[in-house]
Simulated assay, not measured.
Amino acid sequence: MGFVRMAEGVGTPPQALFDAMDEYIGKQAAAGVFLDGGGLYGTEDAVNFVVRNGEVSRVDGPYAESKEVVGGWAIMEYPDLESAVADQEEFAELHAKHWPEVTVISTIRQISTGPEAPGE
């Protein structure tokens, strides 16, 4: 699973990034790699449920203390870790090229299907 994190309230990405992402995602979908994904709105209407000391409390957004938020996600399937890492780097490069004024953290993590360790 891939995540894109960025500062809250940085605005809408430029059209050039949307166009590049459409091409990238189309290529990945045609190759059977991209399974699902999308962008996320800011935290202005987010709702968190916090579990602390056995108690649940609701915290509504926006969250003034948030320095960065998840702005998008994707579920992808790769034959090996090296392919996943290479594609995630290509994805990050698209952001560097088309939205250089914004700091973006592109993260890829394995989805757990059970109690085993990654790669087992």
Rank of each mutant, 00 (worst) to 15 (best):
K67R: 15
V69Y: 00
G72K: 01
G71T: 13
I105C: 00
D22Y: 04
F34S: 04
E65S: 12
R5V: 05
A86S: 09
A86T: 10
S112M: 15
D22Q: 14
S83F: 05
R5S: 06
V4N: 03
V33R: 03
Y41V: 11
A117N: 11
A84K: 08
F49D: 04
L35I: 15
V47I: 15
A29V: 10
I105A: 11
A86Y: 06
P14Y: 06
G61I: 04
M76T: 15
V56F: 11
Y78T: 03
T107H: 01
A74L: 08
G9M: 09
G9R: 11
V33S: 02
L17E: 01
L94C: 01
I75W: 13
V50Y: 08
H95C: 04
D87R: 06
I105F: 01
P13N: 07
V102C: 04
E44H: 01
E68D: 12
D36L: 14
G61P: 06
E82R: 06
E44R: 10
N53H: 12
M1S: 14
E101P: 01
E93F: 00
F34A: 12
V47A: 07
A84H: 09
L17Q: 03
A74W: 06
M6A: 14
A96P: 00
E44N: 08
E68A: 13
G72H: 00
G2E: 13
G37P: 03
P62R: 02
Q110E: 15
W73M: 11
M21N: 08
A117P: 07
Q15S: 07
D19V: 00
V85N: 00
P115V: 09
S83G: 12
F34P: 00
T12E: 13
Y41C: 03
G71A: 15
Y78V: 06
F49A: 10
R58T: 14
P13R: 10
L40Q: 10
G39C: 03
T107Y: 00
Q15T: 02
G71L: 04
G71E: 00
V69Q: 05
P13F: 08
G72N: 02
P13E: 03
F3N: 02
P13C: 02
V47P: 00
A86E: 11
Y24A: 13
K97E: 10
M21T: 02
V51L: 15
L35V: 15
I108H: 07
E65L: 13
Q15H: 03
E77I: 13
F3S: 05
E68Q: 13
T12W: 01
G114Y: 06
H98R: 01
K27N: 14
L81M: 14
P118Q: 03
Q110G: 07
G71Y: 05
A74V: 07
A31D: 14
P79F: 00
E8Y: 02
G114L: 11
